[in-house]
Amino acid sequence: MSTVASDPILRQLSRPAVPALTVVGMATLMAYGDGFLLTSLQGATGAIELSSGPFVHWLRDSSLLLPVFALAVLGALALARRRFGQVLRSPKRVVGAALLVAVAGSLVGLAAIVASSAWNYHLQVEQIQLRHATHDTQTEQAQTVTHVHDPAACTGTCAETRRQTLAAHVRAVGYAVPVVLATNVVLVGWVVAVRGGRIDVRADRSAT
């Protein structure tokens, strides 16, 4: 009786259509690595409401981002397959494929950071307007303030505070670009190294 383990045909047929280990390994490392930066940036420039319990935030956000990173890795591998062929025979091609994966992951990571910054900025603008309404007006007015959404009401120091908040986020994103890219290059490179300098890019079951 042949088993999956002993029969090379069955073994081939039982292989997943995607290089799961490669995808999962790289996506996981990049998701949690970039997630660390995302959470740390939020601690540095993010909204006050989101500042507590960063470890839980990191676990949650990174886990939510994991499928997106997996898709990005898959996409990068598909691109690498098209560009370099089914089998990466030279170190140059391995490096090329690894860079593609790192760049794809970085795009996802940066998109997440930009989205996070935008959400944090949105929350901060509400906070700024509320603060200026409560701190800078008479109490009777302040007591009636719940939320101020009218951007036109935010002028002078309020507008300047808003501008500086935005500037802080822009600086943070600018800081994140090279850091995310470098992080992902290192993480993908480490996975490639652990796998002995190879990346499995094949998606077809007949590949040998």
Binding site: G43, A47, I48, S51, T161, Q164, T165
Partner: peptide
């Protein structure tokens, strides 16, 4: 006591 950010600087909360 903890910290956050607003207005281009650190805020404490």
């Amino acid at each position: 006591v903890n910290r956050g950010s607003i207005g281009g600087e650190i805020e404490w909360l």
